[in-house]
């Protein structure tokens, strides 16, 4: 028997016992067996496309799905189509921008929508501020690309201003800031809840 991914003989036979599809057997050469076994989550793309296919069956029309595919995150620019094909989101804001589209998917995968576990000790990030930072970074890069260094430096100042304000949710303490010269702000503690 040959390996499923190349012409070498299949010496490893791996069962993926994932629910609800039942066991699936892979026949692989040594190299591909290692690749498969050392991957962490069993094929998230499959989980995601499976869940999306179910959504389609549950009354979402083709037109609706086509429209959804074109939807784009204003922060990182990822389209829903891109996400669907890679199984990976583009930025933390996508959970907000695509919230209603991701909801059925999350229910399908986790059977839940509510995080009940641990929370970060610092102020739970203000969603708008995070989005703002990501957009600013993107705009700054675009300005640099266009050799518009004046705009780029203005945006950079704005980013530094946000990151330099301890009360701002996007605040990055000076020790971790890229420009180590901003030493004035004392400490980043006191985020509260």
């Amino acid at each position: 028997m040959k390996c499923q991914y190349c012409d070498k003989p299949a010496t490893f036979h791996i069962t993926e016992l994932t629910q609800p599809g039942g066991p699936q057997i892979l026949h692989l050469c040594e190299h591909h067996a290692r690749t498969v076994l050392q991957k962490e989550a069993p094929s998230p793309i499959k989980t995601i496309t499976g869940a999306l296919a179910k959504q389609l069956q549950l009354g979402q029309t083709k037109e609706e799905l086509q429209k959804l595919d074109k939807k784009e995150c204003p922060s990182c620019g990822i389209t829903f189509f891109e996400f669907r094909n890679s199984g990976r989101l583009g930025c933390p804001m996508d959970y907000t921008h695509f919230e209603s589209d991701l909801t059925p998917l999350l229910i399908n995968i986790h059977d839940s929508l509510e995080h009940t576990g641990k929370r970060p000790s610092r102020a739970a990030a203000n969603v708008d501020a995070q989005a703002e930072l990501i957009s600013l970074r993107k705009a700054m890069e675009a300005a640099v690309q266009n050799e518009d260094y004046e705009t780029a430096s203005q945006i950079r100042d704005k980013i530094n201003e946000i990151q330099g304000d301890p009360k701002h949710p996007g605040y990055v303490p000076p020790s971790e800031n890229d420009d180590a010269d901003s030493e004035e702000s004392a400490s980043g503690e006191g985020g509260g809840l």
């Binding site: 990182c76 620019g77 990976r88 930025c91 990501i134």
Partner: peptide, 10 residues
């Protein structure tokens, strides 16, 4: 993941 940065893909 760090807030204020896109995920790795982007």
């Amino acid at each position: 993941n760090l807030a204020g940065f896109p995920f790795i893909k982007k």
